[in-house]
Design a protein around this nucleic acid. Sequence first.
DNA 1: GACGGAAAGA
DNA 2: TCTTTCCGTC
Length: 601
Amino acid sequence: MKTPGDTGFAFPDWAYKPESSPGSRQIQLWHFILELLRKEEYQEVIAWQGDYGEFVIKDPDEVARLWGARKCKPQMNYDKLSRALRYYYNKRILHKTKGKRFTYKFNFNKLVLVNYPFIDMGSGRGVPQSAPPVPTGGSHFRFPPSTPSDVLSPSEDLRSPGVFSTVARRMARGSVSDCSDGTSTNSELEEGVGVEDRGGADRAFRGLLHPRLSHDSLFRAYGGPGGLGRPPPAHRVHADPLSPFPVSPLPGPGGLLGPTLSPALSMTPGSHLPYTPSPSLSPMLGSHFSFNPEDMKRYLQAHHQSVYNYHLSPRAFFHYPNIVVPQPHRPSAAPEKPPAALHHAPLMPHSHSLHHHQGDEQQHPSPFKFKLQPPPLGRKQRDGSASSTGGSSSSMGSSYAASGLLSNSLSCPPKIKVEPISDMESEEEVEVTDISEEDELPDDEGDVFASPYPANGSAPPTVANGALGAIAEDDLDEDVFKTPAAPPMGPLTLTLLGLKSEPPPPISPGGTLCIPLKQRFKRRWSEDQKMEADGEREDAEDKKVRAEKDEAEPAAREPGNVDGLRKSPCLGQGGPPAQRRASSELQRATAQLSLENHGTC
DNA sequence: GACGGAAAGA
DNA sequence: TCTTTCCGTC
């Protein structure tokens, strides 16, 4: 795989800036968490786990200690730290992964989209080098050249996360203790950086690229919740358990986006599969908000895809209607993608995790198996609280300064008002149900693995309602999205957001237009199954007959005769199995398209 | 362990 | 505004 420096970026600068959180002048806990997460040396303390921003605090005491050191709060402990983390629940920055101790999950959609809403992803030219000014007057927002070779001024280079070689080392630094003396100290983090420096870029980019990416681990297709449920770690051959992004928006099997997706995500499509680096801290030492526009664009595009699969805030897109979801890359557009990969290429970002226990599902072009993981229900919404046992809590040990990437930034990141989320509109209330095969999707933690057509409590599971339900989670403005939507497949996903109009939904095969989605899917599935079964059976029979025939008339078999005809591309359905199969495939594809274009009843 | 209210500090 | 601290509850 490529080295971190080849592509990708750290988590957006703003993620590390105190300014990113109005009112805060100090590093915020989630910043700190991200900071630790990107440090390889803290793998044993805290690490990405599961998918899409999920991380586990392996050593609560230590994390608390580090946090306490960072904040000069010697009395800090996990109990207090966790309280702080819990405050993020309402802010949707974080949510708890139920059933897993010390496991939380970042809602990067909230963190990213809300901060990059102004990007015109529809622009073929990418993000303008000079980004629109952000609401916050004093912020210095700009898009640096796409590549290091584009030359950044020395000062810029120091600030730009887009320059990897520099960033790799730099990002690991920037630890300024918030302690009263205001001095920068060599914290453990700082020390860790040194190690990273010595260890090379790969290590230094632990945060940029998932640490485990260094050993061929892969992220599940970012936008591909593509049904990428959460594979057990043991199956995560390619899915980086550390990655907050379950699936990669990268090209590759089913890949939809370009190689480098994001400044926030280091995308390093490997020779084998696409990678989705974990979002991590960018070497934000200054106040500049810089990143590669192309990367950002791709990232957001990918993120857009995730709307269907995760708690994204579609509202953000409505604020910026120009956002356009890219068409799946063609071979020519994605040279890095092995032609073979296209074969499976679903329109949605696809999982690379071929060994995933849900591999079959992932390979299936069907977009119906997405995992939607609504944040944990608030206490009020919860029927009951799940209690767990064990765990630890402790008081701080010795205090020492921990490093921090965030320091004195002057700029403010673009901000979009995050409207209060009522109990009812909350993504938490969106119970997403996998209408396809729930039983196939283990839910080891209460997360919901679902298709993009959740059984919205307030609406029947029609394509529109279902899809909307899926994206209605989070702080979505429901009204805006109450438009007919097509299944989240590639370009059609835009429909869900109402960003792109689609022609009237064609009548699906079998006239199932107004049949509940679930039913239609089942019907289609049955048809497909039947079709395949018939095809195989006929094929087998055909072979058998042929064999018998060959035995009986060995001399009659002349080149160009039977086989010649068999290979004829002009044969219709009545042709040989190969043709029938092709026809079947064609029909299936047609059905697929039909479904895709289905808005609603 | 996890949650969240409350009060207080920065 | 964001914790920090404390605490009762599940």
